[in-house]
């Protein structure tokens, strides 16, 4: 169901979508059952003259079974939810598959810096490629990220990857993802980080191998045009689009250019 709204562009996006589907089935069943009972009772047992309500204490076994049996069923379905969830969670957040590539993500008020490991696959070497608000990824590579923050809490969130992780100052948090679909996606900061929280986005571009290498070369030559800025320039104008928004835009670009 999530796929209907957002691309699923990473290897574990499908698992999360499936989990969503499983839970939707289970709670949908319960919701319609209880909601149906509620509505049915309201219409069935309306006040009629001369009809007195029944006296039901709800303490005899023959009566309590109506709430107890469903509640055992709830327990059973809870176990299913927990089991499926833990399988997915362990895969996404608790295990780190071997890496093909490495990127360091640094959040600060209010932009993202990315340090791509370059050909040697190690950070803090001469061939690192640093960009601002532009993350470039090679399709099919398993990426590890090192997430850092310079000031306050930020959140590295790429909805298309179903990826989200807080950046905590003073800690380096690592995790992984594996892009599986070529395209450019939004990165949004998902943790309140102050005045510019609403503009703290970046563009995540998943490249084919060839285009990835070209882009990296362009960045190093200095002939590269930022995807982020291109993307911000071509967005669909909204009906109430006014000049103020443009001002904010240039502010965002200005900020981006500082870092």
């Amino acid at each position: 169901m999530i796929e209907y709204f957002v691309y699923s562009a990473s290897s574990f996006a499908g698992e999360i979508d499936d989990l969503f589907f499983v839970i939707t089935l289970i709670i949908g069943f319960w919701f319609f059952l209880t909601f149906g009972a509620l509505v049915y009772f309201i219409f069935k047992f309306r006040r009629k003259d001369g009809v007195k309500a029944q006296y039901i204490t709800g303490e005899k076994h023959s009566e309590t079974k109506w709430t107890h049996y469903p509640h055992f069923a709830v327990i059973a379905m809870d176990v299913v939810i927990i089991a499926v969830n833990i399988l997915v969670w362990v895969n996404i957040k608790q295990t780190l598959p071997p890496r093909d590539n490495l990127v360091r993500v640094i959040g600060q008020q209010w932009s993202w810096s990315f340090i791509h490991a370059g050909p040697d696959g190690e950070l803090d070497t001469a061939d690192d490629v640093a960009t601002v608000n532009d993350l470039h990824l090679k399709i099919g590579d398993t990426y590890h990220f090192e997430l850092q923050s310079r000031d306050v809490l930020h959140n590295f969130a790429v909805p298309a990857f179903r990826l989200r992780q807080d950046a905590v100052p003073g800690r380096t948090i690592s995790g992984w993802f594996k892009p599986t679909k070529i395209g450019t996606y939004d990165l949004q900061c998902a943790e309140m980080c102050g005045y510019g929280h609403g503009i703290m986005g970046a563009a995540v571009t998943v490249h084919s191998e060839e285009s990835y290498n070209t882009t990296m070369a362009q960045i190093q030559n200095g002939t590269y045009e930022s995807h982020y800025q291109k993307r911000m320039g071509t967005k669909t104008p909204l009906p109430s689009y006014t000049s103020q928004v443009d001002d904010e835009d240039s502010f965002a670009v200005l900020l981006a250019s500082i870092f």
Binding site: Q94, T95, L96, G170, R171, T172, S174, G175
Partner: peptide, 12 residues
């Protein structure tokens, strides 16, 4: 311990 624990998770 600073930032080591997640690295520890990385190593199964």
């Amino acid at each position: 311990e600073g930032d080591q624990w997640i690295d520890c998770i990385a190593d199964k």
